[in-house]
């Protein structure tokens, strides 16, 4: 049977295989993705990001269990950094999600960032679509909140949760500019530890800096992920955010932005490959690179010339 049909019939191995193919940029994934696309678009996509060790995986484990009590199916995509030198990775988020392994209403997939520009968003996008078509009601994406790629992943979610923990030092150093803006819900996890109020206040102060009135005020919530405290309230906040998006019409807007971000990631990959790998264009690209190396031309002029050449060629 065709991979897409198997997925629609509930075959977990087919789901896993297609995610790998998408991750590996296997061109054969395209047919299945095309067939699955009309079956997607129902899932609520939730991004969870925050500094290393904040308790993201533990929190997701609890959240998933909480959604399971409501009989909702949960997909989880857990992203961990790959080594930029070897491309290898240890993907360890499942350690905190052991009991979810054998629940047939849950599908967990670990991913390495693999270091390709924009490639991660594309792979995550594809995995989301596959899990969505597979019938998952909620899809949770875990990323370490450290840089651009995380912000990019957050743009793929309907609801983004930023997880913090009571600081060791004085400031919330881990929350960087650009990361605060993407949070729809803020969580201070490890609320059993000292300094919760302080972290909450710092978060609140940073949020207040954003003076612009918004229809949705991001709540700041306390959780103790490993005991489950605050999880039901967090689940309610996630559902409230979804209800808010739907009620004010932003659900469609967010969907548009999400789909645009995913489409752009795909195009970026395609365009780069078209210029640097396509047999017709590669020689032009390589020759241009060589000219830059010889200092015969500067990269800006080279880019202009290359674009002019490529757009005038008939393929």
């Amino acid at each position: 049977m065709e991979l897409a049909q198997r997925i629609l019939k509930g075959d977990r191995r087919a789901v896993a295989r297609l995610i790998s193919m998408a991750e590996n940029f296997d061109p054969q994934a395209q047919d299945a993705m095309r067939l699955l696309h009309p079956h997607s678009g129902r899932a609520h996509i939730v991004g969870v990001t925050g500094p290393p060790g904040a308790g993201k995986s533990t929190l997701i484990d609890r959240l998933a269990k909480s959604y399971r009590l409501l009989n909702k199916k949960v997909g989880i995509i857990a992203v961990d950094p790959s080594s930029p030198f070897t491309g290898g990775a240890i993907l360890g988020d499942r350690i905190r999600m052991s009991d979810l392994n054998t629940d047939s209403g849950v599908f967990i997939r670990s991913m390495g960032t693999r270091g390709h520009l924009g490639g991660l968003s594309r792979a995550v996008c594809d995995a989301m679509l596959i899990l969505d078509a597979f019938g998952m009601d909620i899809i949770i994406i875990e990323t370490v909140g450290a840089g651009q790629s995380e912000v990019e992943i957050a743009s793929l979610a309907h609801t983004t949760i930023l997880v913090e923990m009571p600081g060791l030092g004085d400031d919330i150093q881990t929350i960087k500019a650009g990361i605060m803006e993407i949070g729809d819900i803020f969580v201070v996890n490890k609320a059993d530890r000292q300094g919760v109020e302080r972290t909450e206040m710092e978060l609140k102060a940073m949020l207040d800096l954003d003076s612009e009135e918004k229809a949705w005020t991001p709540p700041i919530m306390r959780t103790i992920a490993n005991s489950g405290e605050g999880i039901t309230a967090l689940r309610d906040a996630i559902d409230a955010h979804r209800a808010h998006l739907v009620a004010c019409g932003d659900w469609n807007l967010v969907n548009h932005d999400r789909i645009r971000a995913g489409f752009m990631a795909l195009l970026r990959n395609r365009l780069t490959a078209f210029i640097t790998e396509n047999p017709g264009n590669k020689p032009i690209f390589d020759a241009m690179t060589a000219r830059i190396v010889r200092r015969e031309i500067d990269p800006y002029t080279a880019a202009d010339e290359l674009m002019a050449k490529l757009t005038s060629i008939k393929h």
């Binding site: 080594s83 070897t86 290898g88 990775a89 240890i90 993907l91 499942r94 350690i95 670990s110 390495g112």
Partner: peptide, 9 residues
């Protein structure tokens, strides 16, 4: 991992 593989632990 150091050999470039993805290890799920």
């Amino acid at each position: 991992r150091d050999a470039g593989m993805e290890v799920i632990y």
